[in-house]
Nucleic acid binder design. Structure first.
Lengths: 203, 203
DNA sequence: CTACCATGTAGACAGCGACTACATCGTTCT
DNA sequence: AGAACGATGTAGTCGCTGTCTACATGGTAG
């Protein structure tokens, strides 16, 4: 029998790590503070010292998720190849992240975050769009894409890939392979932006 | 004091109706069978006679949601105007439904349905894609859109509009008006399909 | 008329989140 | 060095929940 120190020492990280695993097998609604406490061998009240309530833990999970996702997207955006290839690379990174962590993604885009965390979450969550916007501007300056408000176009790309990510994560693609869906979506987006998007011409 | 009959008579419908309202103000996780029973003045065990557990109620909500949504989409697809206009009309109907019933939509596309309901849900959920496919085939035959696998293209449209719907419903459009997002997305999709989508050319 | 069965009630149970009072222990001030 | 303090843990309690059981009611079919 190993003697446990009275203080865990890294309880917050341990809880977050365990919670990440739990939501992917049981969903968010299957996440219980008491079970989590049992899992890491602390009393049922201990988590409250680090997360004032269950939602605070979920908010922290969302933050961690955005940081992980942003890292994946950022490295993908810096990959080798043409602008077109890097665009697809980012799309794959996003959808790949979604398929790997479906529950985490749904937590990230949940609407029920505490008001104090939501500001932080919003800024961290918007980073993906910023990256997309940068790539689109670059492609427009290179003459690969038609002119058009980059803000609007980036939002369209984000919106479409977000749909692909969520449906792929939720296995709602009706049998179509994820890669095929991503390829078809990116192809459509790129083709559309090449010829120009009427609703984005008021730049 | 009005005497209540021992049997409610329409308890199932009353529960579903009340549950619809509840999830839109409190979310799915705020839906409680006991509170629901209180709301419609029956004992806490009564709902179990109609929904074997909480998830069964949620599954029924999802079914009702798909039926409502399909009705909206179907009427939109039969609207007046050019193919292009009808396409936008369907998109607006989908996103409009999402914004009007955000919680219901997330329930519909939740992954945790009972295995017995999931088959029913899948068939009802796929109807939207079928409608999109029909419109795309029609547009291709009329020469308005380039050739390409309608199955694939319909999935791309569905995927993109689903993303727009969810982000609009969750207020994640970053300040952009919903109509603008829908217009930009449909413009991009239509433009892309007009010039042709490489990944959909293997029809 | 009676037997049946769908639909209601009432009570019990364990698990949950949240709150409280108290225990432990590293750190900091004197 | 020693005392005070604050951060972090434990333990107990509360009302709420979903689910299970036994029992009550009343429409309907034989």
């Amino acid at each position: 029998m190993i003697e446990q120190p009275y203080h865990h020492g890294k309880l917050r990280e341990a809880l977050l790590e365990r919670a990440m695993e739990t939501i992917e097998v049981a969903g968010v609604e299957g996440l219980s503070l008491r079970q989590l406490a049992r899992d890491v061998n602390v009393s049922h009240g201990a988590p409250a010292k680090h997360f004032r309530d269950r939602q605070a833990l979920i908010d922290a999970l969302a933050m961690a998720g955005f940081e992980l996702m942003n890292h994946r997207i950022l490295t993908a955006s810096e990959s080798e190849g043409s602008l077109r290839e890097r665009f697809v690379s980012v799309a794959k990174a996003y959808v790949g992240f979604a398929v790997a962590h479906p529950a985490l993604l749904s937590v990230m885009y949940s609407t029920k975050h505490h008001t104090d965390s939501s500001a932080e979450l919003r800024s961290t969550g918007g980073q993906g769009i910023e990256i997309a916007k940068g790539m689109i501007i670059e492609a427009q300056e290179a003459g690969e894409l038609a002119a058009g408000n980059p803000e609007t176009l980036a939002m369209v790309c984000f919106v479409s890939l977000h749909g692909a990510a969520l449906l792929a994560a939720g296995k709602h693609l009706d049998g179509m392979p994820v890669e095929a869906a991503v390829a078809a979506t990116t192809d459509t987006l790129w083709a559309g932006m090449t010829v120009g998007v009427p609703a984005a011409q008021s730049s």
